[in-house]
Nucleic acid binder design. Structure first.
Lengths: 137, 137
DNA sequence: CGCTGATTTGACAACGGTTCTCATTGCGGA
DNA sequence: TCCGCAATGAGAACCGTTGTCAAATCAGCG
């Protein structure tokens, strides 16, 4: 029972537009940014709709969601269906997907060590990408 | 330049009460919960004050802050000054502090691999503690 | 020990992101 | 083509958090 990819949602114009906007950006974007992007494209989509679809997509695992330090939710379409993490640039927002068996194993290990079961984890790495490193200080 | 433990804030009754409430709980608590705790104890402290102190304390590294899935900030006084992570129980909220050189090294490695510098990371592990595992399903 | 100026506090308004409401719209099957 | 139901849109409602500003407090000093 891990197949909640049960997307029997109706394909609509706005749904496609959102997915498309997401697909075109290599960075994590907030619901509001996506809404603005679409508006800029001339595609009028209600803000509530953007939120609804984004939620549905993340529930279906079509997009990744992470929270910025100030609690805002940001989304990004993921390249693979597999479990992975991100390395995000604090300067430009560039996000690279990475997999890491090492962390997965570590998480399982420490959790088990303390008697925990049904383990999940959140791992996000951020820094300055090569370009931003060069540009700053 | 990593010593921002420059706490020349004035010690007040409410500040102490907040630190105390935090020290007494082994779980992560939200600002509002702490506010309620104090109120329950008969200690009247303004909500804004709770937020302000919590922020100041986390800035000074006296407490750990993490974001719940729905974006709420939760705090916990940390046992050590050292860099560490948590394994949190989804059932009862119990939080155990763990250190993990393995993750630290992994984070550095994958980041470097993609040309990132000034790397930081967030790692939180959650599951069901021994008790909750036994109790559920 | 009381005074003085600066830091904190507290009540409440303001904010910003997200969710809810509900009438309207538009897809998909019959 | 028609119907029924899911999806949409506009705006209000929510909720955690932050800002405002006058009143309360504290530290140092005379």
């Amino acid at each position: 029972m891990t197949e909640q990819t049960r997307t029997d949602r109706r394909p609509t114009r706005q749904r496609a537009a959102i997915a498309d906007a997401l697909a075109r950006s290599p960075e994590f974007r907030s619901a509001q940014e996506i809404h603005a992007d679409l508006a800029g494209d001339g595609t009028r989509v209600g803000l509530a709709t953007v939120y609804r679809n984004l939620q549905a997509m993340s529930a279906d695992g079509e997009v990744d969601v992470i929270r910025t330090a100030d609690g805002e939710a940001v989304y990004r379409s993921c390249a693979t269906d597999d479990h992975h993490h991100h390395v995000v640039c604090r300067g430009c927002g560039l996000a690279v997907e990475v997999t890491g068996d090492a962390v997965e194993r570590w998480a399982e290990a420490v959790a088990a060590e303390h008697g925990f079961t049904h383990v999940r984890h959140t791992v996000e790495v951020d820094g300055l990408c090569a370009q931003c490193s060069a540009g700053s200080v």
